[in-house]
């Protein structure tokens, strides 16, 4: 058993101590986690993105055009200045504009047309009929421009039941996911650390 595994096991137990009640061991572990996570994130962003995408092209390769996104990026820090903070919106607007521009065709293609196309199923199977009914009724449930009365109301109500089935399935899978995480940690404590299991 190496020292790293023991350190990891002690910290794991410090986090689990929260199950009894909030305590200083848990708090130390929690804040240490925050600190190292942010430190990791900072280093990774600088070394794997800012360096190769900005510093090396500008300072090593002399590609001065990269100064433009560099300056725009630096403008973000103006949000710390009361007087100059409006200028921090310029790079933000660029990112949001680009994101919106590329999102329209992407969502249109992948989520609207493709998903609608695949719903056009032959009505020769009970499952197909249920799929069509569920898609239409869920859309009716989310259609708020008309009061949920009469046919719209009935459709919306059916949509709610289909949504409940979806939420139920997702809950089932969520339980599975959380249990898997616990299994992973127990395999670590009992196997890697204590060597009780293989």
């Amino acid at each position: 058993m190496d020292i790293g595994t023991t350190v990891a096991a002690i910290l794991t137990l410090a986090i689990y101590s929260f199950l009894y009640r909030d305590n200083p061991f848990y708090k130390v572990a929690e804040h240490l986690l925050l600190g190292v996570s942010v430190g990791y994130f900072l280093v990774t962003t600088i070394v794997t993105t800012i360096m190769p995408k900005l510093f090396i092209p500008v300072f090593a390769n002399g590609e001065l055009s990269y100064l433009v996104p560099g300056i725009l990026g630096a403008l973000m820090f103006l949000r710390f200045s009361r007087k100059l903070s409006p200028y921090s919106r310029i790079p933000l607007a660029l990112i949001i504009g680009v994101g919106s521009g590329v999102a329209i065709p992407a969502y249109m293609q992948a989520q609207l047309i493709a998903q609608l196309k695949t719903t056009m199923l032959p009505l020769d199977d009970i499952s197909n009929i249920i799929i069509i009914a569920a898609v239409v009724s869920v859309l009716m449930y989310f259609y708020f421009s008309r009061e949920h009365k009469g046919l719209t109301g009935a459709g919306a109500k059916a949509g709610m039941y289909f949504l409940m089935v979806f939420f139920g399935s997702t809950f089932g899978y969520t339980v599975m996911a959380r249990v898997s995480l616990l299994i992973g940690r127990m395999q670590f404590l009992l196997g890697d650390w204590l060597g009780i299991i293989k």
């Binding site: 998903q115 695949t118 979806f166 399935s169 997702t170 899978y173 969520t174 599975m176 996911a177 898997s180």
Partner: peptide
């Protein structure tokens, strides 16, 4: 994906 995300992939 994680199990939590499974149901979102079926469509």
């Amino acid at each position: 994906v994680t199990a939590v995300m499974a149901t979102t992939m079926y469509p």
